[in-house]
Design a binder for these strands. Structure first.
Lengths: 223, 223, 223, 223
DNA sequence: GATGAATGAGGATTCATTCAT
DNA sequence: TATGAATGAATCCTCATTCAT
């Protein structure tokens, strides 16, 4: 009996801590979304979480750590949702379909976790990626690269990296527009984003099955 | 004596004022580039300009106004450099060439005026475009729309607007990558950016002369 | 069963408590040494001791109490090491020897217990001795006075007190220099410190045997 | 007329700034004296000076800078008061007199500028002299060394340095006691301090005229 | 006893902006 | 115009201490 207490009491306390951390991260997510990462203040996060500033610092050494942890959790959530390869790509899947599905998933994930965008949203000083965003960015990049390597099996590693960078950039740009609109217009932007990516990748996916690629059908386009 | 003062001094004062403004804007450009717009402090701008904070506020009511004016001047400079339509597009010019030239010009302009990127570089809070960037953004958009309307004469206005938004977004994304690299790698990113835009616009430019568009040549792509 | 608990558990608890206290004091000593008393934080002490802040406050009402208890233990340790009178002074011992031995012992004690210096090291606000240091200080003073009273049997009590104050001050000053150096230089400072004290006390030790003191010239002293 | 304005207006503003600086330093001195350097807060200093925290930071980049500037001014004031050599030492002056005079001057200076003591009052962590105190300390040391070199012309440089360190330490220790008392008791401590220094230095001042130094007994000294 | 979460006032410092000169 | 001093709220972060478990 004493033993069970000694084992459970800490657990309960830890549980409380975990809850606080979750609560703080949620609050941080909310604040990051409304004010942006840079302008977000730790006090504001604490206030949003309904705790004192000191409490926040019991769990996170600084603002950056919050962003990093948030990014980490997001990435894990992504892995849990998408599986390791972001999308299991059957070589027989047409490029169009594969890209479309990936974009849809990404966007859905973003809608579920709006901070994702806020964190992904690059550095204040172009070229100076801060550590917080860096990890997230790198992970995303790796995932995209993984996806691409199965989509474009013939590409050279260097090109693959560049292509991944491009895809991420394009996706972020498109996402911004998607999120800025609603309803039919949003859907239209989603289509555009898909088109951009598909058409960008198409010529790189040499041996892949395309959408009825035997004729000049592209004139009608992917729309 | 008093009369001559009243006539000449204003002129001199205006001239001095213009110089001050130019000086301040130059300083602001420099600071925006190094620290980013958000982190830039008015005091830092004044210091960089070699004047006192008070002087800065004699010419600009607040930080935002500086960015706006800077954006305005940039747009004027752009007009002076590019002409009204961003690029006079001869309907006979192949899309590839037209887009390539436009991108090259844009990038060159950016290299001449690095602030441009800093200002263009979106809002801190995704979706909430601040007034400073807004004007710049709108102007850019209009210019791109103008360019597109001659490139894609058959497109509907709504689609044109969306396409312009997309192009601007894609361009910004690409530019970020271009500026983040140097030498051959930078060139490679420039090519990629062009490819993205060309291939995105290609199917929309129905009646345009494309690059040997009569066969399934796209497999080899625009590269 | 309940009885045996009531008899044995308290003992065990007290034992545990003592261990905790010792543990905490050790940790406090370590922290005081590295950061100084003022800058030492109770949280840091608890962390160093491997316990939670709450536990610390179960044994000490506040930071000051830790310092006081630490000082107390130090004084007891000193008594155990040195005996009641700091040094049993045989009236036949030459002053030089007596002082030299006392200084050596003090310094040795300091090297064994570096906190001693940290605690002894005066108040932040000159003239306002805080309670923590006060007790330590008073005890030290009493011990030195005791030592002096056998060294200088003819001195008046008032003078004795003043002399003790001086000696303690001089010792602290010297110790600081001693600890700030190493090797031969440290030894040199030890010699200097001894010289200072010996020569300061010499003229006050009227009837004492001095070192080859062939003329009574110093008896009139510099006073 | 316009010219005189352009020359005088800045001067007036600078004068205001100078006044503020003096005011802030005065406030800092006061706060340092009452709470000690470490515990002194910049906000408290600003409050004491009757200005906002921001104003303080217009003139000093941080707390340390205030202490440094304060120390600098103190050293200059000292130089102005004492002259370059701290005390012009006529080789014929008896050691006793020379030391007595120097101590009197030092103490008088301290009474005029109580911060002096607060700043002189060493580092929180023994052995880790902070920059603020360091400069002051070094200057004082140099001055004492200068004084000693004329008092003890035969000493080796290494010994001189050590002796200077000792003297400063002893002086600080004595001063603390002096300031802790008043009236006759204070005077008594002053005498003791002088005695300590004189008797410490006496054997080192070989060829000097001493007080009724009829036998060369001290030459063998306690060393 | 022990834990560790919680507090909240206070620390240094910054910054957009205003104002007297 | 130009100056630079002045503001004060807001920033991030710390710490002695308390409290529920």
């Amino acid at each position: 009996m004493a033993e069970s207490q000694e084992k459970e009491q800490p657990r309960r306390r830890q549980a409380r801590g975990e809850r606080r951390i979750a609560q703080l991260l949620e609050a941080a997510a909310s604040v990051f979304c409304t004010t942006g990462y840079t302008a977000a203040s730790t006090n504001a996060i604490a206030r949003e979480a309904g705790v004192s500033p000191g409490t926040l610092y019991q769990f996170f050494p600084n603002k950056e750590a919050i962003a990093i942890e948030l990014g980490d959790r997001l990435m894990h959530e992504m892995r849990d949702t998408f599986g390791e390869a972001l999308a299991p790509v059957d070589p027989a899947t047409p490029l169009e379909e594969a890209v479309g599905a990936a974009v849809d998933r990404f966007i859905a994930f973003n809608c579920d976790h709006p901070v994702f965008f806020a964190l992904m949203h690059g550095p204040d000083i172009p070229g100076h990626m801060a550590e917080e965003h860096d990890a997230l960015h790198a992970t995303l990049l790796a995932r995209i690269e993984g996806l691409l390597s199965s989509l474009l099996p013939d590409a050279r590693p260097v090109d693959l990296g560049r292509t991944a960078h491009m895809c991420l950039g394009l996706y972020k740009a498109g996402l911004e527009l998607v999120l800025a609109h609603e309803g039919a217009e949003r859907d239209a932007y989603v289509r555009e984003l898909k088109n951009v990516l598909i058409r960008y990748l198409e010529p790189l996916a040499a041996g892949r099955p395309g959408p009825a690629r035997d004729s000049g059908a592209e004139a009608t386009g992917v729309r």
